[in-house]
Simulated assay, not measured.
Amino acid sequence: MPATTFNALRRYAVIGLLACAASWAPWVSAQPAPTPVVVMNSLPIDGPASYTVFDEAKRGPAFQTGAEPTRIVELSFGLDLDAIPTTATLSLYRLEDPSNFPTGAALASTTLNMIGGGSAVSTTVHTYSAADLGAIATTTLQAGQKYALIMSNSSAPTGITNDDLTENAFTYGGGFSAVLNGNIGQFSNAQGWDQNNGTLAFSMTVVPFAEPVPPTATLVCTPTELLATAGQVATCTVTLSAPSTTDTPINLTLPATNPGFTTTCTSPLVIPANATQATCTITAVANTTPNAPDVIADIAIAPPTTPDAYTVEGPAAQITIRSNAVVPPGTATPVPTLGTVGLVSLVSVMGLLGLRRSRKAA
Score class of each variant (00 low, 15 high):
residue 2 P to R: 14
residue 9 L to K: 13
residue 10 R to M: 14
residue 16 G to R: 05
residue 16 G to I: 13
residue 17 L to E: 03
residue 22 A to K: 06
residue 25 A to I: 15
residue 26 P to D: 08
residue 26 P to E: 06
residue 26 P to M: 08
residue 32 P to M: 03
residue 33 A to Y: 10
residue 35 T to M: 12
residue 38 V to D: 11
residue 42 S to A: 15
residue 47 G to K: 11
residue 52 T to D: 09
residue 57 A to E: 09
residue 60 G to Q: 04
residue 60 G to D: 08
residue 62 A to E: 10
residue 63 F to S: 03
residue 64 Q to W: 00
residue 65 T to K: 05
residue 69 P to W: 01
residue 83 A to T: 14
residue 92 L to C: 06
residue 95 L to S: 00
residue 96 E to L: 10
residue 97 D to R: 12
residue 99 S to M: 01
residue 101 F to Y: 13
residue 102 P to F: 04
residue 103 T to E: 12
residue 107 L to E: 11
residue 110 T to E: 06
residue 111 T to P: 06
residue 111 T to D: 06
residue 112 L to A: 03
residue 114 M to Y: 03
residue 114 M to L: 15
residue 120 A to Q: 09
residue 121 V to W: 12
residue 127 T to M: 11
residue 129 S to L: 06
residue 130 A to Q: 13
residue 137 A to M: 10
residue 138 T to H: 03
residue 139 T to R: 05
residue 142 Q to H: 04
residue 142 Q to M: 13
residue 143 A to S: 13
residue 144 G to H: 12
residue 145 Q to G: 02
residue 149 L to P: 08
residue 152 S to H: 02
residue 154 S to A: 14
residue 154 S to T: 15
residue 154 S to W: 12
residue 156 A to P: 04
residue 157 P to S: 11
residue 158 T to M: 12
residue 158 T to P: 00
residue 166 T to G: 01
residue 168 N to C: 01
residue 170 F to W: 09
residue 175 G to Y: 00
residue 186 Q to E: 14
residue 187 F to T: 13
residue 188 S to I: 11
residue 190 A to T: 08
residue 190 A to D: 10
residue 190 A to C: 00
residue 192 G to C: 05
residue 192 G to E: 05
residue 200 L to F: 04
residue 204 M to V: 08
residue 204 M to E: 03
residue 205 T to Y: 01
residue 205 T to C: 07
residue 205 T to F: 03
residue 205 T to H: 01
residue 207 V to K: 07
residue 208 P to D: 14
residue 208 P to K: 13
residue 211 E to S: 14
residue 214 P to C: 05
residue 215 P to E: 04
residue 216 T to S: 14
residue 220 V to E: 05
residue 220 V to I: 15
residue 223 P to S: 10
residue 225 E to V: 14
residue 226 L to F: 02
residue 228 A to H: 01
residue 228 A to V: 03
residue 233 V to Y: 03
residue 234 A to W: 02
residue 234 A to S: 15
residue 238 V to E: 01
residue 239 T to C: 01
residue 243 P to Q: 08
residue 243 P to D: 04
residue 245 T to V: 13
residue 246 T to D: 09
residue 250 I to Y: 01
residue 251 N to G: 09
residue 253 T to S: 15
residue 254 L to V: 05
residue 254 L to H: 03
residue 255 P to C: 05
residue 256 A to Y: 00
residue 261 F to P: 02
residue 262 T to F: 07
residue 262 T to H: 02
residue 263 T to P: 08
residue 267 S to I: 09
residue 268 P to D: 05
residue 271 I to C: 04
residue 271 I to A: 03
residue 272 P to N: 08
residue 273 A to M: 04
residue 277 Q to V: 15
residue 281 T to M: 03
residue 281 T to G: 02
residue 286 A to T: 12
residue 291 N to I: 10
residue 292 A to T: 02
residue 293 P to G: 05
residue 293 P to I: 07
residue 295 V to M: 04
residue 298 D to Y: 08
residue 299 I to G: 04
residue 300 A to E: 09
residue 305 T to L: 15
residue 314 G to A: 07
residue 316 A to R: 07
residue 322 R to L: 14
residue 324 N to F: 10
residue 325 A to G: 07
residue 329 P to I: 06
residue 333 T to L: 15
residue 337 T to Y: 02
residue 338 L to N: 09
residue 339 G to T: 07
residue 341 V to R: 11
residue 342 G to W: 04
residue 344 V to F: 13
residue 347 V to P: 00
residue 348 S to M: 13
residue 355 L to K: 00
